[in-house]
Design a protein around this nucleic acid. Structure first.
Lengths: 215, 215
DNA sequence: TCATTTCTGTAGCGGTCGCTAATGAAAGGA
DNA sequence: TCCTTTCATTAGCGACCGCTACAGAAATGA
């Protein structure tokens, strides 16, 4: 025993609470971080980045500004965490549909159909957070971050369709880029229409109609 | 001559400058109201209602706040005048297309085609002001006013199509409400895609693809 | 029990928001 | 020339923006 075994090395303490069972030091947080994040998600979803103030957020989350900043960093970091949470929860239907269906065409058909239901669900704000929340955004970084997600999604659609064309699951005259762009256009339009009050049945009809474009 | 002929009646002076050739009293306005309105239009188009401040507007219009308020009322009245101007200028292509083409189908095809060009024109902000400028709006009145225009436009599309079905220009199985909703969805999606950087050719392809949905 | 650590609440920072009172400038009418 | 009318400018109003200094409260470790 040299005395250097039991205690951690001076310059590199173990990461707090990461992989260890030791409870964190100091006064514990008195609110549910996940529940607060969900409230922030609802508010950003409904009002968008620009129209949601920190005062609105703290009121909805049931906390005071210093708690918000201690737990989430700042408004922008909170929003980015909200975006990540949205993609893993309310927005996950799209990835699931594309992954689980046997072809790109079937995946996209299901994605559009489920988008109609999701975008008009009365249990949460209408439309898609990734589509509506950063329209007319004063922060170029925030706007660009969410736009990059949309752009990547269009590219992913195109790749999926291209693979199916290459595999012979779609006719050779099918244009992957055009079909991806068309799908994205309909999807983003559906979000807007839902925000304007279009109903689930109407948008499901749009979804099925959109699939008639495929060769 | 009773003395009451040449001079106007006391309680009801002639409306200033309306139909009369008499120049307006007082110091004349030192800026071009139309040019200033056009600058405001560009700014609202690019940034939307929420993200455009009065300071931004006065800077772009080359005037000071009191001049803006004297000439236009307030920010909301200015925006509503901008919306009216937009509908009569950059947005007029849609009404023209629907009015000038012989059928609803031809009118809608032309409207979508021209929308692709208009929404991606490098000479002005991308997308459609009526679609993008009031997304995530803190003022319910402003948001509702522009939404009402969109809703009326969808209804007008539906009426046009219904008339063509009744006249036998479209097959009986054509669903006017569904086709109108689909057209609106594509149009609003095209605006969004243009704001995300989609090009004219891509959106023109979307426009022609969309017409394949018709029976 | 006491020191250390972390969180919470109060209060308020500098900046921007939409908007306007007050004063001077520029036109026509008498 | 002087008065009236209207516009332009300066300056700043109260309210809200995102954010934080500070002090007290609640946990652990010694």
């Amino acid at each position: 025993m040299t005395g250097m075994d039991a205690t951690p090395a001076a310059g590199t303490p173990p990461l707090p609470g990461r992989g260890t069972r030791t409870p964190p030091r100091g006064r514990p947080r008195s609110f549910d971080r996940e529940a607060a994040l969900e409230q922030a998600l609802r508010l950003f979803w409904e009002r968008g980045w620009e129209a949601t103030s920190v005062a609105d957020l703290t009121a909805a989350m049931g906390i005071r500004p210093p708690s918000l900043y201690a737990a989430f960093g700042d408004k922008r970091a909170l929003f980015e965490e909200v975006v990540a949470r949205y993609r893993e929860s309310h927005g996950a239907y799209a990835t699931r549909a594309l992954a689980e269906e046997p072809t790109a065409r079937a995946g996209i058909a299901r994605m559009l159909r489920e988008a109609a239901a999701e975008a008009t669900d009365p249990d949460h704000p209408w439309g898609c957070l990734l589509i509506s929340s950063t329209v007319n955004c004063t922060s170029p970084e925030v706007e660009q971050a969410v736009r990059a997600i949309r752009t990547a999604n269009v590219r992913a659609l195109e790749s999926l369709i291209r693979a199916d064309v290459a595999a012979g699951h779609e006719p050779a005259e099918a244009d992957p880029a055009a079909l991806a762009q068309f799908t994205a256009t309909v999807l983003q339009g559906m979000s807007q229409r839902a925000r304007d009050g279009a109903g689930r049945a109407e948008l499901e009809r749009v979804a099925t109609d959109a699939m008639r474009v495929w060769p």
